[in-house]
Amino acid sequence: MPEKDKKQGTNISRRNFLKGVGTGTVAATVAPSVLIGSEKAAEAQAGDAIANATIELNINGKSYQVEVEARTTLLTVLRDGIDTGGNNIDLTGAKLICDRGECGGCTVMVDGKSVYACMMLAIDAQGKQITTVEGLADGDDLHPVQEAFIQHDALMCGFCTPGFIVSSAALLNENANPTMEEIKVGLSGNTCRCGTYPFIFDAVKTASRKV
């Protein structure tokens, strides 16, 4: 990529110029000059050379071929991914909320266990069974957790709901009859801001009797 190299060269000299301005006035009472970007950008540019890869993911029982970068997360593929046939994958149930594995909004099941899709690289999801909230129902028959969430009004704005649904289903996979304390601990990786928790606990209790 000669074109790019050339550009980098120009930029480095400009950055040095700006840095020079910063260093020159650093003795002033107030720190006078700040740079946003600069070096980090240069590092990121080095990463651009990494080639993309086409991988195969099994999502909700369906196989998808998708081209990804090394940094592409599973969540990005689910939500924004375009398969090699040019079709949007468009599984937008899982949400990006905190972007750091804190809130559970992006929870999906990987081989039956709940996983934060924002924290898993797409390439690491190869060869695994991925189940999203869209894949829980059996046609028109909702999963018992989904039925129970509706029945108990365990949702308000609903933005955290897909994450809670998948976490609850995964919890019941491991413990079919959890106590209230076990429900709270089992769902402690998920955050709701509307404050639906009490009805979520009721819903998981109800669902546990049906699973």
């Binding site: 939500r79 468009d90 149930g93 869209e134 969430f149 509706i150 009004d153 609903g158 649904i165």
Partner: peptide, 20 residues
């Protein structure tokens, strides 16, 4: 129970963030 319940529990509900 909410009319939007089924869409919200199945991930079908489209928020602004979900528009593609």
């Amino acid at each position: 129970t909410r009319l939007s319940g089924k869409d919200k529990v199945t991930g079908k509900a489209k928020y602004t963030f979900d528009i593609n």
